[in-house]
Design a binder for these strands. Structure first.
Lengths: 112, 112
DNA sequence: AATCGTTATATCTAATCAAATATAACGCTA
DNA sequence: TAGCGTTATATTTGATTAGATATAACGATT
């Protein structure tokens, strides 16, 4: 068989999406580059989309996930808060565990 | 906290989607009603969309998932093959197991 | 043979979503 | 103070997707 099982997980707050795979990879890129515009370029996303995603995340999360500054050395920048880093870490852990679980499930099913 | 974790699973064949939650609920409605048009109406989907989904499923699956007849008693109809029924059943089982797994995961995380 | 409800299909329109473009504000640096 | 790269935001355009409409084919039933 060449059937494959796939999954996506996301976290909701107030019935609206807070974090999914796309936002997580954007947050990781911000952590790597120190800049929202560089992060967007790195993962092939328009700046506008990246900005509105981060804006939504910060508005819905219980605490800010990123901080940013305008002007100054290098024009400004953005970085993850400690809270943001812990959110990324728990999301990725649960996501990897979910993949492993599903791999196991399909091996035990008729689809093999 | 009022964070909630959600998930979607799907099965791919040749890198294209074969079965997801929407198609599964359509297949279940066909099983209940014995008709593609009634199934579409039942779940609030246009006939055209329902037809093209079922067409894609039957083309990508290793064996037909539905059979259909045109004309005759009641104008015709559609029903699941035994293979189709088993696909629906294994999909739903794995999906429920996945939800339970994720519930457990989030209880063990910092998100609680 | 006329009717009926269904499958099967094409075509056109509407709506939603992504992408591109433009611009203001900001504060360090030279 | 002029320039730079960045954040922050609005507006417009384009593309993809969903929805509506129309129609042919079919075979049991009457």
């Amino acid at each position: 068989m060449d059937y494959k099982i796939k999954s996506r997980i996301w976290i909701e707050a107030d019935g609206k999406i807070l974090l999914g795979e796309g936002r997580i990879s954007l947050l990781k890129a911000i952590d790597e580059t120190g800049s929202l515009s560089k992060a967007a370029k790195l993962i092939g996303m328009s700046y506008k989309k990246a900005w509105s995603l981060i804006d939504a995340v910060n508005k819905r999360a219980e605490m800010p996930v990123t901080t940013s500054s305008i002007g100054g050395k290098g024009g400004g920048g953005a970085e993850l808060t400690e809270y943001g880093k812990s959110l990324v870490e728990t999301f990725e852990t649960i996501n990897k565990n979910c993949w492993a679980f599903l791999d196991n499930q399909i091996k035990q099913s008729k689809l093999k």
